[in-house]
Design a binder for these strands. Structure first.
Ligand SMILES: [Zn+2]
Ligand SMILES: [Zn+2]
Ligand SMILES: [Zn+2]
Ligand SMILES: [Zn+2]
Lengths: 130, 130
DNA sequence: CTTTCTAATGTTATATTATTACATAATGTT
DNA sequence: AACATTATGTAATAATATAACATTAGAAAG
């Protein structure tokens, strides 16, 4: 095995693919693209995705069932994520706003409950599509 | 047909079921529960769900692929939703916070982009599970 | 270096979630 | 009445995700 920060073979193959993609990738599209590298079954993909999400290298866009690489060192290991999603071209951008993350990290509900994690998805039209 | 605010037969059956449920319901669980009322196919359920989401009577919890009835008049027709989700018992509560909704409705990203819609999911432990 | 433990992998089958396609019926509009 | 729009019924299938079980590779400990 290896240290925490190093990826295993399957994880690395799948991370590289997602990291190079200009758009979020879906699990079966990932599967199709890595079959030539010997990853043949959905479960191999899902297991790598689970791990990559867990360690914060990628994020899942829940409303799209798709995955993007994290390019935001301040989203602390997948515990605080925010995205903007264009409803026309489906472009997804990770939002990194100190103000927003501070506001949400400190948000307490009526019962004074604080949360350990959040995911926020904004929808609208991107520059190009307006 | 009927006016905007009235539900059709299938929509009403499915809304009533979700509205009475103490927890978010999944599409095929809904299907199972309404089969005795004559709704036999997944598509009938998904069509009603789509419409109910569109008019703001229910919301989809994206991270769970489940649906809950809206009990918050201030979430303007499904355009601004926030939930708290317990990671142990899976209890979901719609958050209604004037401060939060104001903050998010006015949030602008670096490019000054404003968004027409958002969905926020907080995760943590509910009172009972702590 | 050998034993032991754990995480990752490989493989098959299956479960769960959601949509396409096409036909029909009901309602709204003029 | 004629037409447009929305909802419904039905069958088939696509897309997303997990269960179960066997095996392998590396880490940890003595
Ligand atoms: Zn990130
Ligand atoms: Zn766009
Ligand atoms: Zn609501
Ligand atoms: Zn709980």
């Amino acid at each position: 095995m290896q240290k925490q920060t190093l990826l295993t073979k399957n994880q690395q193959i799948i991370f590289d693919l997602i990291d190079r993609s200009p758009e979020p990738m879906k699990a079966y599209s990932i599967l199709f693209n890595v079959q030539k590298k010997g990853i043949k079954a959905p479960l191999q993909v899902y297991r790598a995705l689970d791990k990559l999400v867990e360690i914060g290298k990628i994020h899942k866009i829940e409303s799209r069932n798709a995955f993007i690489a994290c390019h935001n060192s301040s989203c602390q290991v997948a515990k605080a994520t925010a995205f903007s999603i264009c409803e026309i071209c489906e472009k997804v951008t990770e939002i990194s706003s100190a103000g927003l993350s501070k506001y949400l990290a400190n948000f307490k509900d009526k019962d004074g409950m604080k949360y350990s994690k959040y995911n926020l998805e904004f929808f609208g039209l991107c520059k190009k599509c307006r």
